[in-house]
Amino acid sequence: MAQQERARRTRELILDAAAEEFALRGYADTTMHAVVARTDMTKGALYGHFPSKEHIAGALVQQALEAWRALRRHCETPDLTAAAALEALALGLADRLCTDVRFRAALRLTADRRPYGADAPDVRPYGADAPDVFEDARQCLISLVRRAQQEGAVRPHPPEVLAQLLLVFVYGTLHASRRGAEDEPLPGWEEAWRVLIEALTTKAPVEHRTRKHTFPKES
């Protein structure tokens, strides 16, 4: 049991170190040597747990998918209106990005592997068959926007456009950083959300709508 616990801790250490590198540099510019340097272990010990960079990235992407599904279950409860669920989901995604380096790294990995433009190559060096967290989130947001519009809580813009705007807000928290601080998200994203949601909603001022959410933290 003690040996199993040591192996588990070593694996977690590797995932944390790799997440720091992936979040900062992306998949292509992250090296196993850099991951080893962050862990203070031998390269042989690292390869004993993960045979390649691809396997580490795949593990992080899978964890992000599980975290996203947990967040979605948490936000789509029957007692919430669609507008409240929409708010909880967007804030929950932003919260994970700001507080969980593994989730932050995995979403960057997921975004990096998506092709840009009709003629761009579909480069998927890892997890090629894994569901796309961004696409799943987009479809979920579109559905919630439609429901919120039916409730009369969100302005009647195309749901696809509003969902894309919300994803831009969420993904923007990944790249907004303090000057001179390595990969440190900019504070104030909750206030940015209040400004955005006030522009989208049709009725009460945002201060009457926005409430503090407690999000699931399982990894």
Rank of each mutant, 00 (worst) to 15 (best):
R6F: 01
R8Y: 07
R8L: 10
T10G: 12
R11G: 01
E12M: 07
E12L: 14
E12A: 14
L15I: 14
A18D: 05
A23E: 07
R25N: 13
A28Y: 08
A28P: 00
T31I: 07
T31R: 11
V35R: 05
R38N: 11
T39Q: 04
D40M: 10
M41H: 06
M41I: 15
M41W: 04
H49E: 09
F50G: 08
S52N: 01
K53C: 01
G58N: 13
V61L: 15
V61Y: 11
Q62F: 07
Q62H: 12
Q63F: 00
L65A: 11
A67L: 03
R73W: 01
H74T: 11
P78D: 10
A82D: 12
A83N: 09
L86D: 06
E87R: 15
A88H: 13
L93V: 10
A94K: 01
D95P: 02
D95R: 11
R96D: 03
V101Q: 11
V101N: 09
A106H: 09
R113N: 01
R113P: 01
R113M: 12
P115K: 02
G117M: 08
V123L: 14
R124E: 14
G127I: 10
D129H: 12
D132Y: 07
D132N: 14
V133Y: 06
E135C: 04
E135P: 00
Q139P: 00
I142A: 06
I142F: 05
V145A: 10
R147T: 10
G152R: 02
G152M: 02
G152H: 02
V154M: 13
P156K: 10
H157W: 14
H157K: 05
P158M: 08
P159F: 03
E160I: 00
L162N: 04
L162A: 09
Q164E: 11
L165P: 01
V170R: 05
G172F: 07
H175A: 14
S177E: 15
S177P: 00
R179D: 11
R179M: 09
A181C: 06
E184Q: 13
G188M: 02
E191A: 14
E191V: 12
R194E: 12
R194Q: 15
L196K: 00
E198M: 03
T201K: 00
T201R: 15
K203Y: 04
K203H: 14
A204N: 08
E207S: 08
R209N: 05
R211A: 14
H213F: 12
H213S: 05
P216H: 03
